[in-house]
Design a protein around this nucleic acid. Structure first.
Lengths: 225, 225
DNA sequence: CTTAAATCTGAAGGAATTCTGAAGTTCTGA
DNA sequence: TCAGAACTTCAGAATTCCTTCAGATTTAAG
């Protein structure tokens, strides 16, 4: 899962990033609208956590940009103000939820989880793909009803692949989705090879078929057949 | 927006077509699976409205064909039966929504609208040429709905040819397109011959016709027969 | 019809990519 | 602080793909 946090208060931004990094998500921060727009162009997010009051304008204005470039992304608004106006305006423009500062990080977490369930997976907390079932709430994958224990990277990888089934994902896009900005330039793809190998092994061990296809010279694709 | 209605009851099909034509959509009807497959080859649809019970088989079987050639098209299933089985099977196979007969045309309309909102944005790049379909996102070519596995060079070559169908491409322009600047001066075209050969072989093996014509002394042309 | 050039074909190196097991490093929770 | 899990790195093996080549076939021109 890939999140964008647009928040100018450095401490808060850092705290949010730290929290979600710990729970295994890829999270990218931006401290103003300008930076956020830049990130939105180069990344595909699942959710944007958006502060309303930013140094170079209102977060409200960013909503339409977000909706234009990434139609399936969820938006959660943060605001110090308790004003109903902003809330209503934000939700009207397409935001999905609203949180008033100050808040507990755990509340943010549960709202984020709820939104992501709703937005990426269209209201279903379970993704099915032939004999593979991914339960997002439990963060647990099953192969023909047997649970398989996946590490964070493996789970994200499987999710990314299944969410883009039948689509070829380049190694670069996989790297970007799983590691975010941190990998600027890759000299090799060894870690992708390794995680793919381990994921395949675990799925096969439970009797799953080999849906994960290598596209030589490009990347991987999760496909029927 | 372009819709396909697969429905054998003439009155119902006509009513659906009339309604959507009035609201400005392009809609094409088919009264059985055979006809539907034909339309699917020659058109790119945003949504298929699919009756389950058809004279020459179950609409369920059509779903995989649709998904193969146009994986991002929306599918809405109609059924007289209220059976859960069909619904579940359909949705598992990739249908996006379900409507039980009898229904109000206005309900069909709002479901169609909702589906199209969701699927049209995914705008998939599909190039068609007679029975050959090239899906760019999947990086997959199909010959009459059967996938053929192509290497990178073969895929680029096919794409280049189909994108310039009915136009003669010189060997030099092919070389430049596939290998870029790297080839300054060619002493022979052996590698082009080889890739053309392999491409032809793979297409023929799946029962495709020989659209790939040699223009002696110049190059190649992909053409109608 | 003859001949030379162009194209086709299968096979065989060789290069690049991917796979794999294992070892090394970092992270995390007790 | 320590042990185990997760992640990354590494080197050799395996695989796939690209190119080259030599002989066969086809085409165009004389």
């Amino acid at each position: 899962m890939k999140l964008l946090v647009v928040e100018d208060e450095k401490d808060l931004r850092q705290a949010i990033c730290d929290f979600f990094v710990k729970s295994g998500e890829v999270i990218i921060g931006a401290e103003n609208i300008f930076e956020a727009e830049d990130k939105l162009i180069s990344h595909q997010f699942d959710l944007v956590i958006l502060d309303i009051t930013l140094p170079d304008g209102s977060g409200i204005d960013l909503i339409s940009t977000i909706k234009k470039t990434q139609s399936n992304v969820g938006i959660l608004i943060l605001s110090a103000k308790n004003s109903l106006d902003d809330k209503i305006q934000g939700l009207d423009l397409g935001a999905d939820d609203y949180l008033t500062k100050p808040f507990h990080i755990s509340e943010l977490n549960s709202r984020v989880k709820a939104l992501v369930r709703r937005s990426i997976f269209r209201g279903e907390d379970v993704i099915k793909f032939n004999e593979i079932v991914i339960n997002l709430e439990q963060r647990q994958a099953y192969v023909s009803a047997s649970p398989i224990s996946l590490t964070n990277k493996e789970f994200s990888l499987l999710l990314f692949l299944v969410n883009n089934k039948n689509r070829v994902l380049t190694k670069d896009s996989i790297a970007e989705h799983l590691w975010g900005d941190s990998v600027e330039y890759l000299e090799n793809y060894d870690f992708i090879y390794t995680h793919i190998k381990n994921l395949r092994k675990k799925i096969l061990a439970e009797g799953g078929q080999d849906y994960l296809k290598t596209v030589h010279g490009i990347g991987y694709k999760y496909c029927d057949l």
